[in-house]
Design a protein around this nucleic acid. Structure first.
Ligand SMILES: [Mn+2]
Ligand SMILES: [Mn+2]
Ligand SMILES: [Zn+2]
Ligand SMILES: [Zn+2]
Lengths: 130, 130
DNA sequence: ATATCAGTTTAGAATGATTCTAATGTATTG
DNA sequence: CAATACATTAGAATCATTCTAAACTGATAT
């Protein structure tokens, strides 16, 4: 991402110092899965003293603009995904790590949803052992 | 379930008054998805004043004996499933409801897991709109 | 540039699901 | 009926997340 400020403005987000730092990290071209905590730790290493409240605010602001996906993998924390394409995941509980599955996968044999309900999206989570 | 006390003993669980009430409800032959809160509400309606601590303890005891499955659907609460067979779910966020998908579904095109990792299980969650 | 103001950041408090503590109660066994 | 290991419980603690309200700052108008 060359012009982060422009990118933020395009998405109706004021390019504040904190948002620029966070966006520069998140949208550096490498897809990431972050939690508020892992992001905070990364920012601390970068000597960016951004409060947890702002980290939560920013993740949600980016989510609301469609720049991040929210992943509900477990009940311990919320993951945010910089890959906003429809895709699936490997999940290692042991490592608390997610790995994108970007290749085409097809789920066969889904029954009809209940009356008046429409399928919104299909999420496949492949749990890893080791 | 006819003899709940026997059933609990078989699973190395003392048939206390509270466990008998909870097991009678959970294992009545109709598969259920409960949270600590929904179970507590149900028990209140049944005039069974069982403390939240006991409800949490019991759900985890049953889980540890393999009588319940734990479902991590969202980051708001933990669901316990009386259907311990491998199966998938419809999920309506709006209704906060899960519906079993017991028919055979096949996921095609899963890539190889990373080195040294084995696939443990594949979980398909079909999100509903309405 | 400076003033203005809506939007943002922040520390710290609040929330809410879950877990823990430690005192009391009970099922089991001899 | 003991003795005791296990279970229940109220209330405190924990921890991720959200909220509050005061201080701050980016954008816009003069
Ligand atoms: Mn985390
Ligand atoms: Mn609930
Ligand atoms: Zn992803
Ligand atoms: Zn189920």
């Amino acid at each position: 991402m060359k012009d982060i400020k422009h990118f933020l403005r395009q998405n109706s987000l004021r390019p504040t110092k904190q948002r620029v730092i966070i966006a520069n990290y998140l949208f550096d071209g490498v897809n990431k899965h972050v939690t508020a905590e892992t992001l905070s730790n990364k920012l601390l290493k970068m000597k960016a003293g951004i409060s947890l409240a702002t980290i939560y605010n920013t993740l949600h602001d980016f989510y609301e603009k469609g720049l991040l996906k929210k992943l509900m993998i477990n009940s311990e924390r919320i993951y945010f995904d910089t890959n906003t394409e429809h895709h699936h995941h490997f999940y290692s509980k042991k490592d608390q790590k997610l790995i994108d599955i970007n290749v085409d996968m097809k789920v066969n044999g889904i029954p009809k949803p209940p009356k008046n309900k429409k399928i919104n999206k299909i999420e496949v989570l492949v749990h890893l052992d080791n």
